[in-house]
Amino acid sequence: MTDDGEISVVNSIDFQVNSGEVLGIVGESGCGKSVTSLSVMGLVPSPAGKVEGDILFNGENLVSASEKRMRQIRGNEIAMIFQEPMTSLNPVFTIGSQLIEALQIHKKWPKKKAQAHAVDMLKMVGLPRAEELMKEFPHQLSGGMRQRVMIAMAMICAPKLLIADEPTTALDVTIQAQILELMKKLNEETDTAIMMITHDLGVVAEMCQRVVVMYAGKVVEEADVKTIFTSPKHPYTVGLIQSVPDMRDKKERLYSIPGNVPKPGSVKAGCQFAPRCAHAFDRCISETPALESLGGSQRVRCWLYEDEKGVNIVDRTIS
């Protein structure tokens, strides 16, 4: 912890989302994915770390935007759905009243018109009995239904960007697949870009066009989805991909990266991954690597690629 009591969980966010695409953000639990997404919304809980760096949205820097401007953006241009569908809806207001709020604030729609649109949205996310649901309370709905309501609520103003923070982790497997399917459909039918936060590489392979890998609050690698799976560069990414169980080979033991994610605030000099990295050398401990482009869309934060660009360390380790 630093002297003024602030912990810098997310050190610098350095990636972009293109309009209409699905960007995956992956990393182990505690690496700062939720804090990153909340900081885009300007909703990082105040005692938490400050966000350093810029968050550009349509050329506008959200880090320095006024609270008033952020209110106009939230729910209207950027919307968010959360990890916990069971607790993300207000228990004492009806589904309907919670759904129409964003339309009333941002579009200034009259109640009747907003309600009609809300019913349409509930139908769009595949909920039956949409009209009756409007009058029901969250506790009357299952987890999967609540997450659909959350999606309808987030999409109601047709935002340019939808941030989905592990939208399926709290749900059971069949519901997970349905929700992902729904989000994919919505992405294809509207021009809403999705920032899909997950620690499930299967979800990434299924949904995303591009992937950002985070470690200890920093982006360590960024590439399109095919490149990430076929030629990952950062030792952490390599570890992540090796830890995915291969369905074709049932005998294979699950590989997991030894060690733990550093605690927020315990950030030291050098590469944060060094204590767990099999390739670490002197420079890794003393100097912090920068996110460098490897040509094309791939970028990586690792000293291994300082000189010889484009070396595939998977090839190097297997021998």
Partner: peptide, 26 residues
């Protein structure tokens, strides 16, 4: 501190309404 208050803020509600509507009733 609860999740649904975060949801209310994520909608772009004014802090006044977050406090006097969504928080207060609970």
């Amino acid at each position: 501190r609860s999740d649904y208050i975060r949801t209310a803020r994520a909608k772009g509600l004014k802090m006044f309404w977050v406090v006097y509507k969504h928080s207060l009733k609970n």
